[in-house]
Design a protein around this nucleic acid. Structure first.
Lengths: 205, 205
DNA sequence: CAATGTTGGGGAGTAACACTATCTAAGTCA
DNA sequence: TGACTTAGATAGTGTTACTCCCCAACATTG
């Protein structure tokens, strides 16, 4: 398949495909001459994946590259796979952030295994700080209910990880983490509308 | 308080405060002469709110302006407040999107009150489409578990809305929706690490 | 009163990001 | 043969969120 056919098959402009090739998001096609190369199904699949990560999950090009690299590299440990996905959506925390508030929450929720991921803890601390700076104080009881719901979701996540193939497991974990986030947020908004209507009524305008 | 003092109090550069003034995110100070104005606590609070919405919640400047306008305008209906927050984080859907798959899900979950919000439904459809384009097929049972968890969260959300003041309720709903999203996502990641460790073990590297 | 510093207002500049367009030489295909 | 396509490279575009600079007008300090 030529580049124009690849573009037609994926609805991605040729210029954009060339850009992804330059940025090493997409692997090169097989050169058949100095100015011709052939692409195949693997390029179609990869391109759709790239578009989902950039478009749906909102990753940057460089974060997408890291995720794709992670998907290709040997799995090492089943647990560490999460790090690939989480690192892609979490900016690295400086050394001097105070994570004690996050540690206290992790203790309360029994999430001891998460105590080693400083970056995500810092993201939690930053998000809670942004909340309180805005004058919104989240009661502990509310956070506890959130934590219980998120634990349900996380258990559903690991329950559905395929155990037959390490590669399938890796793919599942990374994509399930990244691409499911917008799904969850949209579901929350819809559930809020439903709950709000049942509680307060509404005009539906 | 002069602009430099406002900058010192909020850790926001003077040039950025001027930018927010130009963009009408921040209300003008009281002019005491042609080249002097006074600012007060309301500016400090507003500036912190702006920074939380832009920094923590990741809103754009124009979305932030809409949210702030919504917070100032009369509340109208308790239920419609959600629309202000949801509209700020959801891009408007074109007229020709097919929402039938979203409608089916809403029916299944009993979220009938959400059937009028086309934009958020379109966001759900788009997110699910991105997932399947990436070769990740979410089983219905997984989505159902997600839906149950999100309903818990939404009920916790409406349970904690203050009922004494309409203004406080509005503030709570909008901020609780927007600023809580990064909190929830960080919590999911931490919960995943905990669940993954308990299920698979791990090196913790 | 003078020297120094700050401010409002406005325009222009910047850096990052994700493309998008154009060009050339070297092909392919009918 | 001649129209079309391509790889590879360079440069340009549009958006966003600032950031810098300038000036006249003021405030503050000595």
């Amino acid at each position: 398949m030529r580049i124009s056919e690849l573009a037609a098959a994926t609805q991605v402009p040729v210029a954009t495909i060339k850009y992804y090739l330059r940025e090493k998001l997409l692997h090169d096609g097989v050169l058949t001459s100095a100015t011709q190369a052939r692409y195949d199904d693997s390029h179609v699949r990869r391109l759709k994946l790239i578009r989902s990560l950039i478009g749906t999950a909102g990753l940057s090009v460089s974060a997408t590259r890291e995720v794709l690299l992670g998907l290709e590299s040997p799995p090492e440990s089943g647990h560490d796979l999460l790090g690939i996905a989480h690192h892609a959506v979490t900016r690295t925390a400086p050394d001097d952030v105070d994570l004690s508030s996050a540690q206290k929450l992790l203790d309360r929720w029994g999430w001891g295994a998460a105590t080693c991921d400083r970056d995500t803890q810092a993201a939690l601390v930053a998000a809670l700080h942004g909340l309180s700076e805005a004058g919104f104080d989240a009661p502990a009881a509310l956070l506890d209910r959130y934590a219980a719901a998120m634990q349900d979701i996380a258990e559903a996540d690991v329950d559905t990880v395929p155990t037959d193939s390490a590669e399938a497991a890796m793919r599942h974990v990374v994509l399930g983490t990244l691409l499911m986030e917008p799904v969850l947020l949209a579901m929350r908004r819809l559930a809020q509308q439903s709950a709000s209507f049942q509680r307060f009524g509404g005009t539906g305008s």
